[in-house]
Design a binder for these strands. Structure first.
Lengths: 206, 206
DNA sequence: ATAATATCCGGACCGTAGTCCGTTTAGTAT
DNA sequence: ATACTAAACGGACTACGGTCCGGATATTAT
C-alpha cells in the first residue's frame, strides 16, 4: 500500500550520481568534522559558511558544492538522527512502530518528534531555514505521509492530507522551541497537548 | 475579563514617543509610497531596502530608522488591513464578532484569516520573517489570545493556551500559501479542513 | 532673530549566504 | 608513463539586510 523509498536523506553528495572522487570525500569529512567543532564552540547560529571553510582548510566554493546551502549542511548533520527516528516510526516496536492502533501511533509519533526537536532543536530549525520548499524536503514529506496514513488508518475520512498538514504545523521546530524556551512549556505538557489534539481529531465523526 | 490594548499595530514610528518631526513624517510617506510602487513592479520578494531607499530618494539609514527592519516595513504596509481584520473579529457582527457561539466564531475566524492570507499572502509572509520573536509581534499575540479565549468559552479546559498555539500554526501564512500555490488546494478546502479541526477539538470532552 | 538641543539624515561600512569561472587534480584509457 | 577529461577546487565577487556616526535640520525657549 505504501511503498516509500526508504530514508531518502541527503548524505552530502549533491546528487546520488556515481562515486564521489576521493578528494571530494576527504573534504566532506573535513567539513562535517569542522562543522561539529564550530557548533560546539559557537552554537548552531554561530556557524557561518566562511568560518567553516576556513576551519576545514578548504575554499568557500567547496562548502557550497558539497552541501548546496547552509540548510543543506544542517540536514546532513542531522541525517543520522533523522534516519534513526525514521526507522523507529516505520519499522520499530509499537506504539511508535507498526502494530499498535493508529491513534496510539499518532500519539507516540508526536512524543517522539517532540523529543527529537528538543534534542536537536537549533539544528532542525537551521535545516528548515531553506528559504522556500522547506515543506518539500524528503524528511518532511515522509513525516507528512506518515501522519496522513495514520489518520486514514484511524478512520479519519475528511481530507486527511490537509489535516496532516495542520498536525505537522503543530510539530514545527520553531514553534515548539519557542514554547519551550520563551514560555517555559515542559515537554510533558507539549506531549499532553498533542495527545489531546490528535485524540479529538481522530475520535468522533462529525 | 480580557482587557487588550486595542489594535497595537506599529504605524511606522519606531516607538510611540511624542510627535514625529515633519521631515520624518514626510519621508515615511515617501517610503511607503515607493514601497507600494516597487511591490507592484517587482513583487514583495523583489523589494530590497536599497532599491526602496533609492526610489524614495532618501538614505538607507532612514529606511531602517523608520521601520526597524524589512519585516517591520512589511508590517506597516499591512497595518491597515490588519487593523480592519482585528476590529472585525473583536467588534464586528457575528459570527466573526461577538454574539455567535464560540465554535462558530472560531470557524469564522479561520475563514477570515484564510481569506486574509490569500489576499495579502506574500506581504504577511515577509512580515513574519522577523528572524526571531515572530510569535511575539503584537498582532500574533492578539490572534493567539483570541483563539485561546474562544477555546475557553467553548468549554475547552485542557491547556487552551497551548492548543491555541497549535491552531495558530495551522493558519500560518507560509503553510497556507504553500498548500494553495504548490498543491493547488482551494480556499474552500482550507476552510472546511479548519472547520473539521476546530469542531473536533472543541467538541467532545475526552 | 538667535541660540540650544533633540531628532533625523545619508551613505560608507560590515557580516553573511550564495555564485562564478579560471585553474588544478583524480581517475581512466592508451 | 602519458595524455585526456570530467570533476572538484578556491577565492574573488555580488546582493542583501542591517549598523554607525558625523553632519544637517526642525523645533522650542529666550
Amino acid at each position: 500500500m505504501f511503498c516509500v523509498s526508504l530514508i531518502p536523506i541527503r548524505s552530502g553528495t549533491p546528487f546520488g550520481s556515481g562515486q564521489e572522487r576521493s578528494d571530494a570525500a576527504r573534504n566532506r569529512e573535513l567539513l562535517l568534522c569542522a562543522a561539529r567543532e564550530l557548533i560546539d564552540e559557537c552554537g548552531v547560529d554561530g556557524l557561518t559558511m566562511d568560518k567553516l571553510a576556513e576551519r576545514a582548510g578548504v575554499g568557500k566554493g567547496t562548502v557550497f558544492r558539497r552541501f548546496g546551502s547552509r540548510a543543506g549542511l544542517m540536514m546532513t548533520l542531522l541525517s543520522a538522527a533523522e534516519a534513526e527516528f525514521q526507522s523507529r516510526f516505520m519499522f520499530g516496536p509499537p506504539p511508535l512502530g507498526p502494530g499498535a492502533p493508529p491513534l496510539e501511533r499518532l500519539i507516540a509519533f508526536g512524543a517522539g518528534r517532540i523529543g527529537y526537536v528538543l534534542e536537536y532543536g537549533d539544528l532542525a530549525r537551521a535545516a528548515d531555514h531553506s528559504p522556500y520548499n522547506r515543506f518539500e524536503v524528503p524528511a518532511a514529506v515522509l513525516w507528512h505521509r506518515h501522519i496522513e496514513h495514520l489518520l486514514r488508518a484511524a478512520g479519519f475520512d475528511a481530507d486527511p492530507w490537509l489535516m496532516a498538514v495542520s498536525l505537522s504545523a503543530t510539530l514545527d521546530p520553531e514553534r515548539l522551541l519557542h514554547a519551550v524556551r520563551v514560555h517555559g512549556v515542559s515537554p510533558g505538557r507539549l506531549e499532553e497537548s498533542w495527545r489531546q489534539l490528535v485524540t479529538r481529531v481522530v475520535g468522533p465523526a462529525e
